[in-house]
Design a protein around this nucleic acid. Structure first.
Length: 790
RNA sequence: GGGCUCGUGGUCUAGUGGCUAUGACAACACCCUUACACGGUGUAGGUCGCAGGUUCGACUCCUGCCGGGCCCACCA
């Protein structure tokens, strides 16, 4: 073995070794039981971030454990690269704007750019030792995924789980595009609360609003049912100022008596509550704003004005007619488009939905059946389901995504679905098979231009991955495990369960493991805007991938972990210690042939402790706990094996004549067994250094060509008598060390040790070891005592 | 505003209804012991977020509050 371990050289070398020897290759022909993992496909974004490194490392601990448990591991890798995130990446990289390009040109640019970006991105995952079979690969925009996603759409339509209807959708008037909740952000904006006079039977009713331009879209007025000030208006109609409109006044608990004047106008569609009211009371719809942010014809003289202009004009007109009581400046938080900062509007358009609101009870049942790790993560799922208010909106007014396999009759809007065997299709490019509309005979068809929401595709990852092996589909799906972080329980996890149940009436996996988040040293979220982002690439360069993984194993599953650079140090030290201890051990195993002699007492003690460690670690891993075995193994290796056992046993190598003739061989057997098993226990956490040591020595004597496909330790040695002797031995040894330290002497210093009768009786069989370990010149019987030699 | 979760020596972290509360890093002292000074042996450092309650007894259970994280909702 080399003098020093250089992770920069070794980690790269080992990674190549794994790839060349296909260590992580899924074997479709194997008879071993399959363990399948629904790997999260990361969104292609250029670079892996630290949160990725953290959670993928944690998954990998578990996967590596099961691989050593001799499971046939199905661990695919995918990338998520359609939808808004990808559009944005391409727009940034190529400095273009999707909305200002030809649609097909933009799509082509995305596809081409992704081809260039992906390989380097995936490298980051390989670099941290993710043991996926990277040859089982999909991207959520590839033909395979498109086909499955479109088929899913068609199947759900056929079982009456999908419908298309007019619905308000969030819209950015600036970018002229529909947007999703994830694309919104909160922005504090200075505005005015305008107290405006409505008339009820010539009486003034003062209503506060920040959006006077929506007066022409006013359809109702609400007050809180317990609000005595306004009860008298119940059932009456109010006249909307400036516009010759009469709207009903009604009680509803969603009106807040403490806000403004406590009475509120409901418009089409000012905000979320307006939409709820519209649905609840079946109110008319009066659209005041067009998709490009202009006032509609409904607004009379304001038609064609921008929202801001109309607001200004209407305020002026209200003033002129003495209908504006006051303007109070306020700052409030509004939803704006993350990208351009424009305030979001709700605009009506035709949207596709998956009908699932009727399934809440079932959803809870499905969720309960999963084996959640940690358990409490289920409550997030539970609360999400209980709070569901809408069906699943699946259409997106976007460019780069999976197209709906749908055309409409230009006359009667009859829905024409693509043929399953033609999938994937693009309705814009492809034509429907039928020539005439079956309903009205028209022969002109319009393609659906919207694309499917990305979650409708990523909610199919188990099926997508499993169907890469059609012959094994039934063995691969449902899968054993879904690993992911807790932020997308309500998206990815939930939608995957829903789809799997809708299609196959079965849960997509048995187990889920949920990772926590990485925070900055102040426990704050890492974000580019705060400038507190730590790049995993810098960590692997500075400390190595094993140290990064060791750090990721340093908190319980599901817990958030504040990043501290110093936490990488212990991983680095662990690597060095493993190397040095192995180097030392192996140097004394050169003449060892693998025989198992009759074992010495202290060796039985060592192996008894090791057996316990193995048992505990195995139990922990079976329960998705990598933290405990990592900590216990580290402690065992460092203190019990290195500081105590190796120190004790040294003398048998240096002075073999002082011991019986088997003593050295017994130590060799014990060192071989203990070190190998420690390496195996550490292997899931630190795959590189353990492989390097395995390759340097053990591979010659062990069956498997890589430690990562070797068998998980299974040692059952329990010798209570040896354990008792060994424990007392360590107790005495510790006392001697304390004594020497207090006397400011070297640990090499010779002493005279006096044991009491009972101690002597117990330690008699290991007296020579004790003499050597304590550097006792002499061991006597008497009152326990340690003294320096004079 | 709601849900879940976390808050333990300077820093990170383990932990249990009841022995002197775990380990790591940092600090300090001593030791160059033929694997490792990126080491070894020790020492010091905590009213276990705050305020109540349950209990013979709580860091551990309950309630409220404060602070962090994630998700959701609100934003007239």
């Amino acid at each position: 073995m080399q003098e020093n371990y250089d992770f920069k050289i070794s980690e790269q070398k080992i990674q190549q070794f794994w790839e060349k020897n296909k260590i992580y290759k899924f074997d479709p022909k194997s008879k071993k039981p399959i363990f399948s993992i629904d790997t999260p496909p990361p969104t292609v974004s250029g670079k892996m971030h630290l949160g990725h490194a953290f959670s993928y490392a944690q998954q990998d601990f578990i996967v590596r454990y099961y691989r050593m448990q001799q499971k046939n591991i199905f661990y695919p890798f995918g990338t998520d690269d359609n939808g808004l995130a990808t559009e944005r990446l391409i727009e940034n990289l190529k400095n273009v704007k999707a909305s200002q390009m030809d649609r097909q040109d933009f799509i082509n640019l995305c596809l081409k750019t992704l081809e260039n970006v992906r390989p380097k991105y995936i490298e980051d995952w390989k670099r941290i030792g993710t043991s996926c079979d990277f040859s089982i690969y999909y991207t959520t925009i590839d033909k395979h995924c498109q086909k499955i996603s479109q088929k899913s759409f068609i199947d759900l339509y056929k079982i009456n789980r999908e419908y298309r209807k007019n619905a308000p959708a969030m819209w950015c008037p600036e970018c002229q595009t529909g947007i999703s909740q994830q694309e919104c952000k909160d922005k504090e904006i200075a505005s005015y609360f305008n107290d405006i006079v409505f008339k009820v039977d010539n009486e003034d009713l003062i209503i506060s609003t920040t959006r006077p331009e929506l007066l022409p879209a006013c359809v109702a007025i609400f007050y809180h049912p317990s609000d005595d000030r306004y009860k008298k208006y119940n059932g009456k109609k109010a006249k909307v100022p400036l516009f010759n409109l009469y709207v009903p006044i009604m009680p509803d608990t969603r009106a807040d008596p403490n806000k403004g004047t406590g009475i509120v106008m409901c418009c089409t569609f000012g905000d979320q509550t307006d939409m709820e009211w519209q649905r609840a009371y079946n109110l008319p719809i009066r659209n005041a704003i067009t998709k490009d942010g202009k006032m509609t014809s409904l607004t009379g003289k304001y038609e064609g004005m921008s929202i801001k202009q109309a607001r200004k004009e209407i305020i002026e007109d209200l003033k002129n007619e003495n209908l504006l009581i006051s303007q109070k400046p306020i700052t409030h938080i509004v939803n704006v488009h993350e990208r351009c900062g424009t305030e979001i509007e709700f605009v009506e358009s035709k949207q596709w939905f998956i009908k699932y609101l009727d399934l809440k009870k079932d959803m809870l049942k499905w969720g309960k059946k999963l084996n959640w790790n940690p358990k409490h993560m289920f409550s997030r799922y539970e609360h999400w389901v209980n709070g569901l208010q809408w069906d699943w909106l699946i259409s997106r007014q976007r460019f780069f995504g999976i197209p709906f396999p749908v055309w409409y009759c230009s006359k009667c809007e009859y829905i024409i679905l693509a043929d399953e065997k033609d999938l994937p299709i693009d309705p814009i490019k492809d034509k429907p098979k039928i020539k005439k509309c079956p309903k009205c005979g028209n022969s002109e068809f319009i393609p659906e231009k919207d694309v499917l929401d990305t979650w409708t595709t990523s909610s199919l990852t188990p099926q997508i991955a499993a169907s890469l092996f059609p012959n094994l589909y039934k063995k691969l799906y449902p899968m054993n495990l879904r690993p992911q972080a807790h932020d997308i329980i309500t998206f990815w996890l939930f939608t995957t369960v829903v789809k799997s149940q809708l299609h196959n009436k079965i849960n997509p996996w048995q187990d889920v493991m949920i990772s926590g988040f990485v925070l900055d040293p102040e426990r704050k979220k890492m974000s580019k805007s705060k400038g507190n982002v730590i790049e995993p690439q810098d960590i692997t360069n500075e400390y190595g991938s094993d140290a990064l993984r060791f750090w990721a194993a340093g908190s319980k599953l599901g817990e958030d972990l504040p990043y501290q650079e110093k936490d990488l140090v212990s991983g680095k030290k662990m690597i060095i210690k493993l190397w040095n201890a192995s180097k030392f051990s192996i140097s004394h195993l050169q003449d060892y042939k693998g025989n198992k002699p009759k074992l010495e007492i202290l060796d039985l003690w060592m192996l008894t402790k090791l057996s316990k460690l193995i048992k505990n670690s195995t139990n922990s891993f079976n329960n998705y706990d990598f933290f405990k075995p990592k900590t216990e193994t580290e402690n065992f290796f460092w203190h019990i094996f290195c500081d105590n056992y190796l120190e004790i046993v040294k003398d048998r190598f240096y002075n073999p004549n002082n011991y019986n003739k088997n003593a050295k061989l017994s130590a060799q057997y014990t060192i071989y067994t203990t070190l190998l098993n420690i390496l195996k226990l550490v292997a899931p956490i630190m795959p590189f250094i353990t492989e390097e040591i395995y390759q340097d020595y053990f591979v010659k004597y062990e069956k498997q060509k890589s430690i990562h496909i070797s068998e998980w330790p299974n040692l059952k040695i329990e010798n209570k008598k040896a354990e008792k002797i060994g424990d007392l031995f360590i107790e005495i040894l510790t006392k001697v060390r304390q004594f020497k330290t207090q006397k400011q002497k070297s640990l090499k210093e010779e002493v005279i040790l006096t044991l009491d009768k009972k101690q002597m009786q117990i330690l008699k069989p290991v007296l020579q070891d004790l003499k050597a370990a304590t550097k006792a010149k002499e061991i006597k019987i008497g009152n326990f005592n340690i003294e320096l030699c004079l």
